[in-house]
Write a protein that binds this DNA or RNA. Structure first.
Lengths: 162, 162
DNA sequence: CCTCTCAGGTTGACTTGTCAACCAAGGAGG
DNA sequence: CCTCCTTGGTTGACAAGTCAACCTGAGAGG
């Protein structure tokens, strides 16, 4: 456990970060020019479009996206202004607004999806053999499990190692 | 080539995205609380600290970071205000400013590095077997090569597939 | 009932990144 | 030399995300 990463680790770590940066940059630009929306826009629309009645409570949407509550509030406000979603108060619980997809929003996601999916395939999956994709998934899931073990707990044990 | 990702692809894709989001969030928070700096701050300091004379031309720094020029200009201005870096005009070419690390900046990166590196190990590498880390690297590099083939070229061939 | 607490959302101020317009110095061609 | 073009940086306006403070309705305990 030295103070720095080994050359091997360094190279791995930097490749992983760069892969993500380049991929999302390319996808974001394509989505912007093709469909005039951002990746977060797309994610919101995709999730809502799969929900029953194409409607979710703010809290459910937040959990699905794993966003902060303020981020969702800001984003939904902007998307409402653009006509993609609609906000309504819920009968059961007056605190929890119901977010639903408008016809405009549904049309937008349907128009955007094919090209976006094609690009994910082209830029990401096409670069990998099935075995590599499999390995990538297993590794990513392992990291996520590891993070889940660390995040909810006290970060003291982590600080010790540093 | 359907209009949507298969379940397998979907799961892989989402895991990869989530891995990155969670990792960087955790690292950013730790870096913020431990050393009061952001990940971009850290990257700038790390690169400058390894340069000869701990100094680089703006252009070289930009290429190393792969940032936009305006992003670098803004970021350097902020870091200069905080005393981490210093800007000087170069004798050879009056356009290209030289960015150098100050003593404060050097002290900051030296103080921050051990804990940051330990966290990368703990949150990322500790979750993976050596074989998985290796697979991750190869896959990431394959995706980067694939992106390099697509980015510089005309995106028309890509649009056809969509 | 009445109050107290708290979960769930909203808002505003601030930070960071992007885009487009601009500026300034170097170098090529007449 | 003088003009023009190109490269490299800066600036300002804007979009997006985070944090902290705040508001509001639901439910528990007296």
């Amino acid at each position: 456990m030295s103070d720095w990463l080994s050359d091997d680790e360094q190279r791995t770590w930097r490749s992983v970060l760069r892969m993500h940066t380049h991929l999302t940059t390319a996808l974001a630009q394509a989505l912007k020019t093709d469909s005039d929306m951002s990746i977060p826009d797309y994610e919101v629309l995709a999730i809502l479009s799969e929900a029953p009645q194409r409607t979710l409570r703010a809290r459910e949407l937040r959990c699905a996206l794993m966003w902060e509550k303020s981020r969702l509030a800001h984003h939904i406000r902007r998307m409402e202004q653009r006509g993609y979603v609609h906000r309504a108060t819920c009968d059961d619980d007056a605190r929890a607004p119901l977010i639903s997809l408008t016809e405009t929003g549904l049309a937008a996601i349907r128009a955007a999806a094919p090209a976006h999916v094609a690009r994910v395939r082209e830029l990401f999956f096409a670069a990998l053999t099935p075995a590599q994709a499999q390995a990538m998934r297993e590794a990513a899931e392992a990291v996520l499990e590891n993070l889940a073990r660390h995040e909810p707990e006290e970060p003291d044990t982590a600080a010790d190692a540093a």
